[in-house]
Nucleic acid binder design. Sequence first.
RNA 1: GCGCCCGUAGCUCAGCUGGAUAGAGCGUUGGACUACGAAUCCAAAGGCCACAGGUUCGAAUCCUGUCGGGCGCGCCA
Length: 571
Amino acid sequence: MTDDFINHFFKVVAETMKPVLNSWGAGDLAENYTLEPASKRGHGDLATGIALVAASRLKRPPRELAEKLISVMRANNELSNLARYEVTGPGFINFFLNDGALMEAVHDSLALGAGFGSVTPAARSRKILLEYVSANPTGQLHVGHARYAAYGDSLKRIIEFAGYRFCREGPLEAADVTAEFYINDYGSQMNIFGRTLAARYAEALGMPAKFPEDGYRGDYPRHLAALIKEEIGDELAGQVSPSASPSAVDFFKQRGCEIVLTEMRNLLQQFRVRFDSWFSEASLYESGQAAAAIDELKTRKQTFDKEEALWLKTKARGDDKDRVLIRSGGEPTYFASDIAYHSQKLARGFDRLINIWGADHHGYVRRMQAAFAALSHDPDKLEIVIGQLVNLVEQGERKQMSKRAGTMVTLEELLGSIGVDAARFFLVDRSHDSTLDLDLEKAKQKTEENPVYYVQYAHARISSILRRAIAENIPASKPHGDSLERQERELILHILWFPATTAAASTTHSPQRLTAYVRELAASFHVFYHNCPVLKAEPAQAAFRLELCRLTRNVIARSLDLVGVSAPERM
RNA sequence: GCGCCCGUAGCUCAGCUGGAUAGAGCGUUGGACUACGAAUCCAAAGGCCACAGGUUCGAAUCCUGUCGGGCGCGCCA
């Protein structure tokens, strides 16, 4: 897209200051200075502390430098048409944007349509593989998974909209994001799962069965076994009682996994979390890629044998200790297939791999990075984001969430009790590196206080105004002349920061920037609404305010969409 | 013991990657519907930004240490 207003203003100011900055030997500041919203009324609309930064470097008084910068700004007509400026406090330069410029900015932003706040589409965009949730296909998704699902899906939307920064300090670039769910359908957990289902199946047939020692408790495996029983009847009755045959275990493992994945898929779809790809861990063994990765590590002399196991030399690459690839019993570890998986991702042509892992896996980060390096992959291509956990709170007490103990709130229950919009907003609204306490009873009671409704209400309210404008045949048009009310100015300023907000949300991987932003935007609108009549204003003003309303509605709807929340026209 | 995350209003949390007098929601108190949707708005009260140092024009933000909480430190995944 063409530059948004803030970006444009930044560049005009930079160009204007550049000759002076160069003469001071500080030309680099022209690209690196910060322009920010002025925090308090009386400080103008935008502010920069560039003179303060320059002052400490040049050992000269900041106010003197600020005055000098302002004097060249005065000589620039384009800039003077946009704003007036003054030096305050220790040497800040404050910009007071002209009403006319703000009105133009509204018009121009609206004209950008979906491009407002978005990265310029590239002819050939880079490819990102974003992996998240990746739950074992042995049970139900719980609120912990829900948090990563909401976070990961929002991040995908945000990166695709705002772009991604591939190099430190580099620009945001257009990117295609493939969202992938890694299915851990291999290994001992799966065998236990198969044996559990076989036992529950036998029970369902009224036959005696030995429940496996580490079997999966709870009702869910019974539910799966019942479904399978409906499919096959008593066909396998002879193979499961009193204990299951290997082929029966295999069957239950596979069929159970399929059912679980189908249910997960449906549930995630309801949650508006869309995966582009589901990748099976077991397929790495079937295709030989797991073995190939291990061979390659051997060839590169990155492994050694000890106590009948095969180890990878990760300690030399920053890990706390060396790690086992193949157990003394001959079985490969999860780590081994994960290494193959990561190589495989790169082989598929992705420029960047982003993994979202729970905090309970952070100890695994170093070893993965070490393995990555051991294969001479570019370390910058692997980015691991750690998300903190969700704790359950019941009657004020924290409880560990556990499948086995049954203290677990499923995604299904969460959706049933508070709905998709409230759940997504709630889960993404707090920083992903803070632990989240969830009290389901409170969440149910407090659903109506969820800030999502405050925002959606603003959207519905605007929609209502726009509907009436059409019904009453009041045109929206390009503004001319009039000055702006304070509430209009504040609303416009909020809107103009939208592109910077999407950019920041992307570079810092923080969807919560958007929830915070859209909440403030809705607040600005509500204040505007109470002070500035739209339909009942005189025609020229009504026309402009209708444009402002349309722009506000677009930005609210877009912000909500970027975190997977709906923007209803009526509620 | 070591590593990562967190500590901000009574409660739940923001704080734009160093800026001016630290913000919102809930809760409390008091106001505003014969004006486009009161799921809204206005006002008041509420703070040693865990603590101690350091970096600099300037720190809730960066660095070091202490205290408190969470998570991890398997030939589990």
